[in-house]
Write a protein that binds this DNA or RNA. Structure first.
Lengths: 237, 237
DNA sequence: TTGGTTGTTTGACTTAAGTCAAAGGGATAA
DNA sequence: TTATCCCTTTGACTTAAGTCAAACAACCAA
């Protein structure tokens, strides 16, 4: 059954049955509840992870406790691969740390740990995995670039509007969709959303209210309806 | 002579003479003066670059003209490789754009253009380049992570102090160094430094003055002396 | 149903940092 | 030399967003 999960992970999609089972032999499945820490950025590095079920946040914390979320990792996606390849092939192998903290955001979040040492051998022997790995890194670089652009060049209102649009576009659209489908459902708390958008709780709340008062969206709990798509795009731009 | 430059570029360091000369056959050298645009983020993608001499800034601009610098590229480093590997191997090859703008910051900045198509073939045939490419991406991801952490969790004063420390640590230290060596020299304008630190001109100027008044640094033109290293570290933390 | 925990909203206030405007300073070219 | 340009600094002011505190709402477990 783990092979069925691994098959759906992009970097492993080219492996055959035999290779998948070999990989299976070295992985380790772990389960967490909401709020559980998967790793801290102070811990020595053991390997990278795949989210099998649930949701994982990758985040940093400042000295005075403010939190910023860098990534939200949905099922079949990987996280914490970066330390695998720093100084790859160089003689000394320093003790690496995880680059950020990771926490489960839902109960029954399951992750798969791929130990670094064994995986490195696999990458060196399989150029297809290698290229998929690069492609994955490229996508993540693009994402971080975009994230920085948003944080530095746009205010909270623009970022919030942009987030809603992105979520809406990522949503699978049913064939015969109605207008009522111009809604998104948050799968994280507004606290976490604020931390992801580089702001805080209260400011996000006020921003939602403002967009609502302007007749652009309608917010009710975790549901957000897009009332005026054109205006929303205009605000986000 | 171009082979001598390419040899010093990390991803090509494993190539032999023959391979280097082959590579040479497909590259294109370009020269720019201070302020010249190398590419805009609206242009179709042709390939990635290596800085041979001078300095290049990679930056984004907001609608109202504010600028943020993502990277400063010194000689023998690469930039704009990300689009090379997005959707790598997938059948359709969309028209990619450059992920940000690039501008020469010094007169007589020379860059080498490596065309995408030919380079892709090289990567697929050479797993060593492939692994070095990953390693390079990993370092850049680490850098962007750090950048975001700074921008979201620290104020301008902390970021400025952190920048000075990083520059100081990157500086080659002479064997018999004196105390007078606890200085760094900016190789960019304070305008650009502000854009790199996610702030503006005026705020950076005031921040320098504050750190100077507190007896932590001494600023004179492009020179910055570290007067009280312990305090500086404390501020940056 | 109650109580408690956690997440969310609102109000009043503070503050870091941006904006606008003007004046210096330094380098270069005519 | 003067003039011009660009970079930098300084002052006065504005503002977006953070802080603190309290009330409110939702959810779950006992």
């Amino acid at each position: 059954m783990i092979t069925n999960v691994l098959k759906k992970v992009h970097i492993f999609s080219g492996l055959n049955k035999e290779e998948l089972e070999k990989l299976c032999g070295i992985v380790k499945v772990k389960a967490y509840n909401k709020g559980d820490i998967i790793f801290f950025d102070t811990e020595p590095y053991f390997g990278f992870y795949i989210t099998e079920a649930g949701l994982v946040k990758i985040y940093k914390i400042s000295k005075d406790g403010r939190e910023h979320i860098l990534h939200l990792i949905a099922p079949y996606n990987t996280f914490a691969e970066v330390p695998l390849f720093e100084n790859f092939g160089e003689e000394y192998e320093d003790v690496y740390r995880y680059p950020a903290n990771a926490m489960a955001l839902e109960d029954e979040t399951r992750v798969i740990l791929i130990p670094a040492r064994q995986f490195r051998l696999l990458v060196e022997s399989d150029s297809k995995i290698c290229i998929k790995m690069i492609s994955g890194f490229a996508k993540r670089l693009r994402h971080l670039n975009h994230h920085i652009e948003e944080l530095t060049l746009k205010d909270v209102t623009k970022r919030t509007a942009g987030f809603i649009l992105t979520e809406y576009n990522n949503k699978k659209k049913p064939k015969n969709r109605k207008e009522s489908d111009s809604a998104i459902e948050l799968n994280i708390s507004k606290n976490d959303l604020a931390a992801y958008l580089g702001t805080i709780n209260e400011t996000l709340s006020r921003t939602f209210k403002k967009l609502q008062d302007e007749g652009i969206i309608e917010v009710e709990g975790k549901m957000i309806w897009i009332v005026d798509m054109d205006k929303l795009k205009e605000v986000a731009a």
